[in-house]
Structures are given as C-alpha cells and as structure tokens.
Design a protein around this nucleic acid. Structure first.
Lengths: 256, 256
DNA sequence: CCCCCACTGGGTACGTTGTACGCGGTCATG
DNA sequence: CATGACCGCGTACAACGTACCCAGTGGGGG
C-alpha cells in the first residue's frame, strides 16, 4: 500500500522500517495536543503550538502524522481510551451501559472540544474498536447485531447530545470570556422583548421556570439516561431483564 | 446597547437608523452562503467567496454581519426555518413529533454541513424560537416544562445523531473524492487484518452482516424513531395516549 | 569493516483564511 | 443646504496548514 492510497491514519505505520531513531512519537504529539486543547480549546492546538509544546520544530510533526485532520483522528481515538470499560461485558447489560454512558459523559466533560469534531464513519482506531467490543458485547447475547447497532447508537447519541448541551455554556465562556450569569444579563433586553411580545408562551414558560432551582446536571443526565435504558430494555426479550425488576430505580450504588 | 456589549447576532439590528440605502441584505448573504455550502461544503463558503457570489467586495459583508461565526448562526437559524411546522401543535403529539423529526432529518440531509457547527446554547433566532413553540407545544399540555425540555432534547438528539451517521459517507466522499465502495476496498486490508486477529468478534460480526441486504436508511430511521417516541409515550400520563394505540407498541405498564 | 542512503529534525516559503482600518462617495436629517 | 453617519470596497496583516528543501545521521549490505 503506497502513501497515496491510504484512507485512514491507522493504515499507515507510525515508524518506517529503518533509519535514525525518531526523537518524538505519535503518542507524545497526541498528548501535547490534548493538553493544549484542554487548556485553550482545540483551535489553539495548531501545528506550530503543538510542536513548541514538545520542543520540536513545526514541520517535524509531519514526520509522524500525515496531516492535522489525521492527528485529530488520533486524538479522538486516544480520548475513547479514557473510558474505563474494565470487565465489560459483565453479564448485567444495564450496569454495563450505565458505566459506559457515565464514562463517555465524563470524558466529554473533561475535553469539551471534541464536540466540534465529526467522527461519524468507522475509523478502525484501536480504542474505538475496544469500545465496540465491550459495549456492544453487553447486548450481543440478547439482540441481533443490527438491533445492537441501533440501540448503542441510540445510547451514544443520547449521551453526546446531552453533553453537548452541558458543554455549551463552558465553551461559550471560554470563547467570549463571558460567564453564564453575565451572558444572561446581557441577553436580558432581548429576552424581555420576546416575552413582552406575547408570541412565545412556551419560551416564556422556560425562562420563568429557569429562575427556580432545578435538578443538578448530574440528576438531569441520570433521569434521561434511565429513560433511554428503559427504552432499550423494551427492545430486548423479557428474559434478558435484570434479576430484580425494580422499575425506574437507580441500579448502582456508587457515586459518579 | 453598544456594539461592544452584544452577545448575539439577534441583538444587533440589521439596518442602522439612517444613511444611504444598503445594496445587499443579511438574507441575500445568508442565501448565497447556503448555496455555496450545499454545492461545495461549508469550508468553501469563505467571506470572499460569498461576497463574489452576490457580486460584492469581500469587506462589504461586514457591514451586514459582525463576523463569520455570526453569519453561520444566521444560516443555522434560516435552516431551522425550512422545517415545515404548519398547524402544529395539532393535538396529536405523536403525529406532530413524527413530522418534526422527519422535517429535521430532511433538512439535515439537504444541508449535511450543518453537522459541523455547534449550536448548543440558546440563540434566540426567530426560527429557533418558532421550533420551540411548535414542537414543545405538542407536549406542553401533557408534561411539565422541565420534562418537556428533556423529552424534546431526547428526540432532537436522536434525529441529529442518526442523521450524523447517515451523512458520514456522503461528506467523506465529497471531501476525499472517494465513494463508499472504493473506500471499503481501500480499507480491506485493515479490516481483514482485524478480523483475522480474532480479537474483535463483534466487529467481525458487523462486517459480515453488513454484506447482506439491510433495511433502507429510511426504514432504519423510522425504526429508531418509533422507539424514541415509545420512550416519550412512557414518560407522559396514559390519558395522553393517542386514540388508536399503535400496533407494534410494547410499552409496559409499570405500577409504581 | 565502512559506506550508502533512507531516514531524521527543522528552516523557509506559499497560498489562503478572517478581518482591522481607512478611503471617497451618498443621502436622511438638522 | 450643510453635516456626518452610513455605504461599498481596496489594502494590509497576522496566523494558519503544509510543500519543499536541506544538512546531518545511523543501521544494513558489501
């Protein structure tokens, strides 16, 4: 396979057959990029900046990674590896999926900037593959592979869009330097105007309700997650129900 | 409100109080940008290119729009307006939400590039507000506003992540010039290697199954959508059930 | 053993991007 | 009728990804 034909970073070996020993590595580059992105956002992780972070020249990175897009794919896969899937599948699919959902959410909250990278088609990265094996493995004995794909996509979709909402504020604050309270104050006039117009009763309801105490973000997430899991439970044969059919109950006793 | 204090495109009026008549408009600029993005992707819709499309100088656009990011927000809202919500809420929430989901999906498939723009915090755009009123209006009589927010977020999240998956291939083809079949062929060696290793049974199952005929994308979407709607149905009081219960419904009555 | 050349890190340079700034012309309002 | 806030737009700049080129290096074939 020549260089011109590759469709995927994973198909290009990191190290060539022989030559002088490289001073850096994909892992180090990826790590540095993540560090920068965590601190200042993904757009701050430019090739020059990453190179500077590890003490290399800008162009040296291209000895390890074909392009910035490919580097981002590397990063995305490394991030998947942060999700703890030890011992999965365990036999209790609901516990497994809960752990996966929590882990995925926690990872996204740690690295909010992944929300901006699209990662829709199969990448064949090692960690991505591991997630597939472990998580889909939890439902594999209960449903067909097609059904499994759909159900896991449903779950992952829920987690990602839920976290996208959570992230919104933090990212905006980092980008514009404005916190949620100040943003609210600044938006005040527009909100007032919309409410006074009387054309937006639901919007008004949301704003008014938003002023009272709410469930914590964790609780909101949990609430929605239980709903999705119930939905998944409804799609698999009843025999696969967990031993104690406690409906709508929190099934695990550990914290976050 | 001075220019320095705005947090949102919607808070800055399109036209100032007086002066010479503008030659263009936000609407024309937005339209041109969408046309270019549809044809060549969002990254092709640069300020210069958009300006050229409407026969303006590059910098003229900044008389109408504060920045490219704000222009994209304008575009996102205009796209929301493409979803037909006429006559909603109708009283039949399930029909309403189905129509919304279909319309949202169709719009995303027409403009796949919106997948790359994050649009998580409230934008107060007119079309966004309309969507809120109409769609949340469908559930408003049945559930609390908090519950409503969660359920609609669940639905929208499902649609968006489902369409993201559908889009993947088309976008990749446009970006790299490679179609799905050729991409598959190129990935062949990697896939073979992974399967032969024996470490990825689920992955192998997916690949093998993927070679047989599947449900159409429409049917897959419909399948998942029904599942989500069942999930929503389970979260609202039974009185709100539609007159004729759907045949393949398998919601269980829980007695807590 | 040494020599060769595929490899290394990295400097320079190019095309493209978003957009700050300033110009001369125009038109609603005092 | 004068004024000054607006118009369209040309120029200019910093920052980006990365193509290209170079001198140095070290492991395998002779």
């Amino acid at each position: 396979m020549t260089d011109a034909e590759y469709v995927n970073v994973w198909m290009r070996p990191e190290r060539p057959a022989y030559g002088p020993k490289p001073a850096y590595s994909r892992a180090r580059i990826t790590e540095a990029a993540i560090r920068i992105a965590d601190a200042e956002g993904l757009e701050a992780a430019t090739m020059r900046r990453i190179a500077a972070e590890i003490g290399a020249g800008a162009m040296s990175l291209y000895r390890y990674v074909p392009s910035r897009d490919d580097l981002i794919e590397l990063i995305a896969d490394r991030l998947q590896g942060e999700i703890d899937l030890e011992g999965m599948p365990s036999g209790d699919w609901r516990a497994d999926l809960t752990r996966y959902a929590d882990g995925l959410r926690a990872m996204w909250l740690r690295h909010p900037w992944i929300a901006t990278v699209r990662r829709t088609l199969p990448s064949y990265g090692p960690n991505q593959l591991l997630v597939i094996e472990r998580v889909m493995g939890a439902l594999d004995v209960h449903v067909s592979i097609d059904e499994n794909l759909g159900l896991i996509a449903l779950l992952t979709g829920y987690v990602e869009s839920a976290v996208r909402d959570e992230i919104g504020w933090a990212e905006e604050a980092r980008r514009s330097g404005l916190g949620e309270p100040e943003w609210m104050v600044r938006s005040g006039p527009r909100v007032e105007q919309l409410m006074k117009s009387g054309e937006y009763p639901i919007f008004t309801k949301i704003v008014v309700q938003a002023r009272r105490p709410h469930l914590s973000r964790d609780e909101q997430f949990r609430h929605g997650l239980e709903r999705v899991l119930d939905c998944i439970a409804a799609a698999i044969p009843p025999a696969a129900e967990p031993p104690a059919p406690a409906p709508r109950k929190r099934r695990k006793d550990r914290g976050d």
